[in-house]
């Protein structure tokens, strides 16, 4: 079995939950999200993060605003919407159940 592919699939499933959980700690821009999400090990890559943020924004789970201060790098800040918070709550609940089940089985 290709372990690299299996590991990538695990991370793929976790990325959305990790990004939403990261934003639950407060508004953040891309690099901040990446730093927070990967502080315990690399879960989300730079190239996967931005299309994922676009999808979540289009789905109404997060909203964004540009912070343009003259003389500084313009940054796009994201935060959770109530719909995103509800989705995160449900994903956390399912994740907890899944982890318990795997702890018993593996």
């Amino acid at each position: 079995m290709d372990m690299t592919s299996w590991q990538a699939q695990l991370r793929k499933g976790a990325a959305e939950l990790v990004v939403l959980a990261t934003l639950a700690k407060g508004e953040a821009y891309g690099l901040q999200i990446l730093d927070r999400a990967n502080q315990a090990g690399e879960i989300v890559s730079d190239g996967a993060l931005y299309p994922l943020l676009t999808r979540l924004e289009k789905a109404g789970k997060i909203v964004a605003r540009w912070d343009m201060v003259e003389g500084t790098n313009p940054r796009k800040y994201y935060r959770l919407t109530p719909e995103g918070e509800a989705m995160l709550g449900e994903m956390r609940r399912l994740w907890g159940g899944f982890r318990q089940m795997m702890d018993i089985l593996v």
Binding site: M3, T4, Q7, A8, Q9, R11, K12, A14, A15, E16, E42, I43, V44, S45, G47, A48, P51, L52, R55
Partner: peptide, 13 residues
């Protein structure tokens, strides 16, 4: 398809 994300890390470390 839209709900799927591309692999968070294309090549695992």
């Amino acid at each position: 398809l839209l709900a799927r994300t591309k692999p968070a890390l294309p090549v695992a470390g």
